[in-house]
Design a protein around this nucleic acid. Structure first.
Lengths: 202, 202
DNA sequence: CCTCTCATGTGTGCACCGCTTACATTCTCT
DNA sequence: AGAGAATGTAAGCGGTGCACACATGAGAGG
């Protein structure tokens, strides 16, 4: 039957997200255009606008998806890391994710995120909470704020600088070793960290 | 004289860079278009292509300029930091630069940098060298590699997460305190860092 | 001084983009 | 079954990157 209607797509929103992800992985964020997404979904150029009022909204939705996947990816390594090596393993997974999905990772962090997209802020809040929990578990007594920000920043910075080719990424093992080393070192300094946080109040 | 020739601009390349910087600061990287640059320089849309074969080349040139300015900015705080507080002060300046020039900082780091643009790689090499020197000075005996990468990553991550609004950036002092705290803590851990680097060879 | 040459700027055009508006189709709900 | 909302299409506007042929004028060689 040629006329199996097909006027309505079924789940165009999901199809758009899938197409966007594919375009992102294939040709980078420049290739992620509304029209290209529409083409790939087999739909008219204006159709995606029914589900994403503007390009920015599509990108934000993709980024939110990325945040959730990253969180799952980390949790899969260890659901509740506490010991330094467990935490270091999670850090390695973070950098690994960035290197495995460079365009997605950039979409998540590289462009200014709009504070209005609630899906996106929810997803980022979730990952921030995950990191904060790690700090809480690893250092029950300490003020977690000074810890989790430092840990996240270190790992995030490692991910980005690796992504930008500033460090050697030739072999996965070299990357993993470097990340592990840096994170473990930071954790040996943790007592000094929370102490410093006490010293200069707020 | 209306006809002071003016057919040739004089120094269009510099004018384009200036215009690009202005557009970047005013309206973000999306506003940085070849045509907008041409308009602002008072020149035809195709003229900038005589100096930058493609948009990417213009962006790379702006980024290289940014790298050089950042390096100067850091060196101005302290030309040869060695003590922890001096280094922490430089770290604060790094984050400050990112927050003061968000679009420029993003242009420098957020998009995949092409390894072919030699101006850009030279500028990044210079800043990497500056950071490496810091590590060397601060820890003369130690293997500097494990140090400078960690320090840079921590600071870079702090800059980016602040830029993305993941941390509190309401007052400059709060930002500075957080950066100082994190960096100082990492430096107290430096012995452990180089020791770990020795333990797991390469 | 005059001409030749070439770097540099102009004009035009193509394909693509984001986004809007008016219209067509289908789903859903009563 | 009919109304109205949801979701698709068609057409069009202004902007963009980039390629091409052409115009201009500054500097080198006679």
């Amino acid at each position: 039957m040629p006329q199996t209607t097909a006027y309505h797509h079924g789940d165009l929103r999901a199809a758009c997200l899938r197409a966007a992800r594919e375009l992102l992985e294939e040709d980078g964020s420049a290739a992620l255009s509304m029209r290209a997404v529409a083409r790939r979904a087999g739909v008219s150029p204006a159709a995606p606008y029914r589900h994403f009022p503007e390009r920015e909204a599509l990108v934000s939705a993709v980024a939110a998806e990325g945040y959730r996947e990253l969180t799952e990816h980390l949790a899969a390594v260890h659901p509740a890391p506490a010991a330094p090596d467990e935490i270091a393993a999670v850090a390695v997974a973070y950098v690994r994710f960035a290197l495995d999905h460079p365009a997605l990772f950039r979409a998540m962090f590289a462009e200014p995120c709009d504070p209005d997209n609630e899906e996106r802020v929810a997803a980022t809040a979730a990952i921030a909470e995950y990191v904060r929990d790690i700090a809480r578990r690893a250092f029950p007594g300490a003020d977690p704020d000074a810890l989790w920000t430092s840990v996240w920043a270190l790992v995030h910075g490692l991910a980005f600088l690796h992504l930008d080719g500033k460090f050697d990424t030739s072999t996965p093992d070299a990357v993993a070793d470097q990340v592990r080393t840096a994170v473990l070192a930071l954790f040996t300094a943790a007592p000094a960290l929370s102490q410093a946080a006490d010293t200069q109040p707020r």
